[in-house]
Design a binder for these strands. Structure first.
Lengths: 133, 133
DNA sequence: TTTTCAATTGCAACAAAGTTGCATTTATGA
DNA sequence: TCATAAATGCAACTTTGTTGCAATTGAAAA
């Protein structure tokens, strides 16, 4: 489906800025930060607008917050290529780069205490990437 | 082992501030933020000192960064009560409270891509706690 | 196509989180 | 107890994120 339709279906105007942010996400190789959105944009996007666009996309679950090793949150498109919300990530402790882990899954053993409701599982593997090891 | 000895064994001076930060950690029921350290301290700790103490403890692995759902990092004592670094956490999306998950473990299925070295696994379950559901 | 109007953007100002340099204080070993 | 390196507190700064408001723009109706 076209980005424009995705936005409209969620009741969001298909503005240049929003379409560009989606393009940056599609173009990225993994979860990205607010800063990376701005740096990788062809348009001059205002910092505040990026925060607002990200928040709007989060609320509509067009994107979601991936568990990042570092200080700043990283976001990625929800359901990209059929991936569900809960795929695990890898973060290199040397270069800080975070990528999606394909072909790896995690299984829960044991039950949550009574009364707790699990909605989403976030897994991050920290270690060294091939370049940094 | 006494907190004082833990510090000395890592080559850190056993100052009042550091001992108090350790006391706050021991007193806490789960991972805590910089702000919570300051708020729960009996001493008047300077904000900057808390950042420096936390960083020193992180480097020595006296504490580690627990995967938090929210915006700010949360820390907890390493190896507390025999727990290893990698125990999973639960974060409530309503009240934001993060707690340690006991009696739950996660098993990996599948291999990392060639060249990647996994050192630590961080798991966060997001959902609703008994109070908020 | 043009008009209209709410939604969105950019800017300025602010708030919160984290860092750095430096003078003062403190823990520890001699 | 004394000397000294390590740690602290303070001021100033950077980075990250938020809010209010005026100007702009997308989209629906005329």
């Amino acid at each position: 489906m076209k980005a424009e339709d995705v936005l409209k279906r969620h009741g969001l105007k298909a503005t240049k800025s929003r379409l560009e942010v989606i393009r940056v996400f599609l173009d990225s190789g993994g979860p990205i930060s607010h800063k990376e959105i701005i740096e990788n944009s062809m348009l001059r996007l205002d910092r505040v607008s990026v925060y607002r666009i990200v928040n709007a996309f989060l609320k509509k679950e067009i994107i979601h917050n991936a568990y990042s090793g570092g200080r700043n949150p990283l976001f990625e498109l929800t359901g990209r290529g059929g991936a569900n919300h809960c795929h695990p990530h890898f973060s290199c402790r040397m270069c800080g780069k975070t990528t999606c882990l394909d072909g790896v899954a995690f299984y829960q053993k044991g039950q949550l205490k009574k009364g707790y409701i699990a909605e989403r599982q976030k897994v991050l593997i920290e270690g060294l990437c091939p370049k940094c090891r």
